[in-house]
């Protein structure tokens, strides 16, 4: 296990496109989160979206908007294994096909962990800058960080599955982005009046982070704002976890059934 982690670490550490995309993502999300208080619809109940504890909603929500970047990282990372035929070589060298997929899933977890830690640090920094109360640091709203982590792993698992399925980086990216449009069509047209639409994978993942903006709070579960304590919807989180398990199992199944 440790060996597998260190193998993935060697592959990522020395890959310049990994660093470029990661740093780019970090800079953009820092910029976007930092600008959140200038939004016209900023909540008047919670005063400033950059103060504790609302910063946890703001940062995770904004960072999750940019999830395309880490998804491309995953697609490139998996695509490399096919491009360089190292997936094949790993199997020849003695990994079972299932272990290979699991070892690649380590990259998903590694990237999601790095980004989540970054978002936590970024939130602490911005929250501290806007002079929030220290005791509110890890309020209930901190659960959205967990939601964000699950969402990240979820979307990345989905990108992972697509990358395993299509092998070629370009095609995988097109399919991945294309699916966003498909899901929008499903959500707004096909399942317009059906509860199914709330269980579409990306919709489930999206519901794990939540905009701190007032309009959203009003509609959230129909509760009135003053008595409402915002925290993660753990039911959605559980469904998200199921989707992750499905993506991973399908990847293992597909990879095992195919000649490498």
């Amino acid at each position: 296990m440790l060996d597998l982690i260190s193998i993935e670490y060697i592959k990522l550490k020395n890959n310049s496109s990994f660093w470029i995309i990661l740093v780019f993502y970090m800079l953009i999300s820092f910029y976007v989160v930092g600008k959140a208080d200038s939004l016209p619809a900023g909540s008047d109940v919670f005063a400033n979206p950059l103060q504790f504890p609302m910063i946890w909603l703001t940062s995770t929500y904004c960072a999750s908007f940019l999830v395309l970047f880490p998804s491309i990282l995953i697609i490139l990372n998996i695509g490399n294994e096919f491009k360089y035929k190292t997936a094949k070589q790993h199997v020849i060298d003695g990994l079972s096909k299932t272990t290979f997929i699991l070892s690649k899933f380590i990259s998903v977890c590694l990237i999601a962990t790095i980004i989540t830690i970054y978002v936590i640090l970024l939130s602490l920094f911005l929250g501290w800058q806007s002079g929030g109360e220290i005791q509110d640091f890890f309020g209930e709203q901190f659960s959205f960080v967990t939601g964000f982590y699950i969402q990240l792993i979820g979307v990345l698992s989905f990108a992972f599955l697509i990358a395993i399925l299509f092998k070629r980086t370009g095609i995988s990216i097109v399919v991945f982005v294309g699916y966003y449009f498909i899901e929008v069509i499903l959500y707004y047209l096909v399942f317009k009046d059906s509860p199914i639409r709330d269980y579409l994978p990306l919709e489930v993942f999206n519901s794990l982070t939540f905009s701190p903006i007032k309009d959203n709070l009003d509609s959230f579960s129909g509760l009135s704002i003053p008595e409402f304590k915002l925290s993660l919807n753990w039911f959605s989180a559980a469904i998200g976890a199921i989707y992750i398990a499905i993506c991973l199992s399908l990847s293992i199944l597909i990879f095992n059934r195919r000649d490498v």
Partner: peptide, 12 residues
């Protein structure tokens, strides 16, 4: 084993 072509990461 060496199968057909050398399979390595070109950037490493």
């Amino acid at each position: 084993a060496l199968l057909e072509t050398p399979n390595f990461y070109s950037y490493l």
